[in-house]
Structures are given as C-alpha cells and as structure tokens.
Design a protein around this nucleic acid. Structure first.
Lengths: 175, 175, 175, 175
DNA sequence: CATGAATGAGAATTCATTCAT
DNA sequence: CATGAATGAATTCTCATTCAT
C-alpha cells in the first residue's frame, strides 16, 4: 500500500507537470490526493519543500537513466543510447520530465538541469571518436537533446521512429 | 513618450518572462510600472487579457522575423537565415521570446507556438534542395531550432559563433 | 464620518485590549468592524503593523497626558498631578491604556512603556523638593504609579476618591 | 529524573511566561520539551487544562509564600515580611509569577489573582497596628505590592536593596 | 484617463486535537 | 506511557477584480 506521503508526492507531480508549480494550489493537491491539506505541510513543511522532494525523487530516477550509458563499451553505441533517451522515456515518467523541463524556464532557482549531468559524458564520447572539437560537438548534441525532449514531452511528434533513424544516421549510427 | 498602457505591457512582459504568468500578480505589475492597479483592468479587462495583448504584440514582431526568409532567393541562404535566427534575437526582445517558450510548457492553452509557423517554410526549402524526405528533415530542423533557442534564451551558451558555424557546416552552408 | 481605516483601528484596539493581541484574529476584527478582512492588510500591511499603528496613535495621546505636568509651577502641584493621572484616565481611553499595560508582559518587544517617559519628570520634582535621594524616591513613585494604574485598569478599585486622598496625604499634598 | 509530564509542565510554563498563552502553540511546547505533541493531550486533555495545571502547581507554591507570614508574631514583622516578598522571589519561580501577572490582563477568566489572597491578611495587620482605616491602607499596600512585583518581574529594578529600605522606612520598619 | 478604496474568494500555513499502534 | 500520522477548522495574508470619484 502506498503511504499517504507517496500519494501526495505523486499527485503533486502530476498536477505540477500539468498546470505549473504556482498555478497548482496545495488545496487542489490535497483534494486530488484525497488527504487533508494539513498533511502536506506535516510531511513537507513547504509547498517548495514538496517540489524539492519531487525533484529529488526524480533526480535519482534520472541518474539511473544517464548511467545506463555505462552498459555500452563502444562510443558509437554510447552515443546511440544517449540520442535515443528522449524517445524512450517511460510513459509513467513523462510527468516528471515535463515538470523538470518546465521549471527550467522559471526564476533561475532550479538548475537541477538534467542535461547538465550529461555534458561530460558526451564530451568523453566525442573525444574517443576523435572529433576535432569534442566540446563543441557535445554542446550541439545537448541542444539537439533538449529539442528532442521538448518535442516528445509536448507530444509534437508523430512518427518518432523515423525521426530517430534520421538522427542516428547523421552520426552514422544505424540500428 | 510611452503611454501608460505600453508601460504596463512592457512591465508585465518582463515580469511574466522572469517569474511566470501565475507567479506574477497584477499588484506587482502595477507597482513595478508605477501605475495604479485599477488601470491594468481599464486597459485590459483581464490578467489573461493582458497576457494575450503581450502575445499579440509579440506575434507581430515574430512574423516579421520569419518573413525575413523571403529576402533570400537561394534555399541554402534561406536555410542559413533560419538556422541563425536563434542567435540573432535582439537583446530587448529576449523577454518576449523567453515568455513564449515558457508558456509552451503550461496548460496546453497556448500553442501560439513560434516554430509552428516555421514548419511549412522549412519543408519548402528542403523540397527545393531535393532532400528525399523533406518533411522529416524539417521536423528535425525544428527540433534543433527549439534546442538552440532554449540554449540562447536560458543563457547556456558561451561561444555562440563557434556553435553557429558548426551547425551551418552540418548543412554545408558556410559564412 | 469616520473612515474605514479609523474604524478598523478603533475596533482592533478594543478587541486587543479585551482579549490580547494574539488571541484576536484579523477575521474577528474585520467582522466586528463590518469591513472585509482584506482591507485590514491594505491599510496596515501586517497584523503587527495594525498594532503599531494603534500604539503610535496612543503614544501621541499619552504624551499630552504627561505634558500636562507643565501646567503647574510648584513641584507639589506637579507631583499631585502625576499621582492623580491613573484615577483620571478618560473612560474612552481605558482600552488603549489597558492594551499598553498588557503588552508590557509580552516578549519584550514593546517597551513603548508609558511610565518610562515619566521618570525624568518625577526625578526633577523630588530634586526641587530637596529629597535626599530623588532618583530612588522617583523609582518608588513609578512603582506605585504602575500599581495604581493596574488597579484602575483592571477595575479592582471601588472608592477611588478615598484611595486618592490617602496617597496624596503620604506626600503631604492635600486637595 | 523528572517525568515527561513534569517536563511538559515546566516547558509550557516557561513558554507561556515568555510569549503568552495563545501565542504559544502546543507544537512549540512539544518540540521544546522533546516529546510528542500527542503526549500533551494524554496528560492534560486540553491546552487550557495544561494552563490550569500550571496555575494549580503554582498556586500551591504561592500559598506557602503567603503563609510564611504566620512565622512572625509582631504585626510590624508581618508587614515587613509581606513588603519584602516581591524582592525575594526565587529565581526559578520567576516564570511562574510572570505568567500569573501576565494572565491578569487577559480575558477576565483568570482571577487566580495572587494578591487577592493577601488582602485579608494585610487588613488584619493594619487593624492590629490601629490604623484608622485599615482596609484603605491595605488596598494601598496591595497596589504598591503589585507595582513592586511588576518592577521585579519585568526586571526594571537595579538597586533593589535601596528601594526595599526606602519602602520599609515609609512604614517605620527597619532592618 | 487614472486613482485608490474596497471586496470576496482563495492562497499557504498553523493549530489544537484524535486515534491507531 | 508514548509516538507519529492524520484531520478540519482557523489564521494570516494575497489575489484578481470592481467601482465611485
């Protein structure tokens, strides 16, 4: 049985992702989660505290994703893995990633920036692949990564498989 | 002399871009603009109305940007022009674009989506360039465009010239 | 016509004096004054701000009281005037003085202490009367003053005239 | 070892004296005492109940003080004893007396008034001393007593010994 | 056109209290 | 005896909006 704390966490995540942090009132969260409003503050102290708990919860999930790259030896495979991440986000984790991306645009506070952790990894890959300017190429990939993630999270993509292939082709990595 | 209406508009734009729409109260706007709170409602009826006015104001500015593409004949030059747009955003227009991009992540209402208007233009370009799948390639470019814009608007880019060249190179377009 | 701001001020004073500062909610004040709760904060920013406004309002009234001493030349008459102050508090000003005395017992913040301003005046009087230790005698009178005020404000006194005379007699001042 | 019940009692006393009854939440008490909030209600049923328990606890201590008067035969000595009480309050009992005096100013409920019990005793003394109006004189002494207690409890007194002597002198009682 | 007083609904947070364990 | 989860009502304060001037 999920504890009420977890229930609050999940409900808040969903609502924050849907409507934004400040547009989501604690009373709405409480009602949606079927708990008393007071309980939110007993568990999280703040509305901000609730947000941070969600972010922390997700940061851990996120780490795992990025560390998946270590399952591959060849830099080509690693690059392929990374470029495919946005298209492979699990459906139940979409709200979390949407929230994270939305927060980037708000008041600088939150640079829990997912793609930041990714940068050194990508630089290493392009170094191994002997690109002349690995750092620059990495920066490009991260921009592309953000663009892909945006497209996926805002559901602006239909035939994702085709797009996926196109991108992999640009780096000469095929399925 | 800027009219008070314009003053409200500009102030609201700045604050919306900085802190988000629902985190910006009409009283903050009034105080920052140095006008009475009532005046906002005399001019705009609604807080939402104020937002729409800003968006409309900006949509027009935005149109001009995209239509700049018609200044070029050769599709290569057109593509180059488009790919450079994110790096050429005028400093005083940054808040508007930041707001627009931030709104994408909020409650589906606002698909005033800038890059949407861009899609047919880019498809046309790739058709002329005889790419086998112009629509797919366009979709890719738009994703990339979003990624670039994000990087610029959130100030995550240092040597933008280098990145710019890298991107142009990928499409064999050189300065 | 009294402005709503004054209405809030008076109502709050009455309730604060009756039930104490923290036991009096802003909603109770608003209801009792017949105004919206929001108006309190529009006029005073804080519940504390409201308190300070009351205190300030009363401090001025209080000053006048103490300065009444200058109407008398002879130190005996001055002393008499001071010793009679607690018994001469105007009925409509009772709530204010009660609030002031009650606040002394709370969290040190408020040393708007009425009798503090009185000290130098009383010392001067006893100096003129050539008491051997005027400062000590003043301290005694102030203690007595507090005791009298307490008795009056908490309505523990019946035959105030008799008590008044007794006190005046102790200092050989007769009606 | 002090039982947790006593710990709650003492902590609450301290906090009530410092910040007032209604400004002190049960959660603050619990936290300060290092016990769970629930425990307060197991032991005291009510927040008010907790207050009454404190008051009762102190009333007993207080009784003892006043009954100390019976240790003296001569009315002069008895008067002297009473007039010295405020200056002899034990340091660890200051919070209790401060609370008691503070409560006098709140919502009439609490007339646990310490000096009330004192009145008949003082009247008896002045009768024995053959004062013409013993009741009036007693009333005066009680007022003075309140003033002295206030000065001591709010730490407004420096050279208490000198003041003490001055007062005793007024009644021709010397050390 | 512009202000500032005023409002009612709703925001986040705290409170005293209950109850299962 | 003691805890900690849970609640519902209340509290301070903010918000978008209206209206008389």
């Amino acid at each position: 049985m999920t504890s009420k704390k977890d229930l609050i966490l999940e409900t808040a995540l969903k609502l924050f992702a849907q409507n934004g942090f400040s547009a989501t009132s604690t009373s709405k969260i409480a009602k949606a989660a079927g708990v008393s409003e007071g309980l939110i503050f007993r568990h999280f102290e703040n509305k901000e505290g609730l947000l941070h708990a969600i972010l922390e919860m997700g940061r851990i999930k996120g780490m795992a994703l990025f560390e998946g790259v270590t399952n591959f030896q060849k830099p080509e495979d690693q690059l392929k893995y990374i470029l495919q991440i946005p298209f492979n986000i699990r459906k139940d984790e979409l709200p979390f990633w949407k929230l994270l991306y939305a927060l980037k645009w708000q008041s600088d506070n939150y640079d829990e920036e997912p793609s930041n952790q990714l940068k050194p990894i990508v630089i290493a890959i392009f170094s191994q692949l002997e690109y002349p300017k690995p750092e620059l190429e990495a920066e490009f990939v991260l921009m592309l990564f953000d663009g892909m993630a945006t497209a996926v999270l805002l559901k602006k993509i239909k035939k994702s498989k085709a797009i996926e292939d196109l991108i992999l082709n640009k780096y000469n990595i095929h399925d």
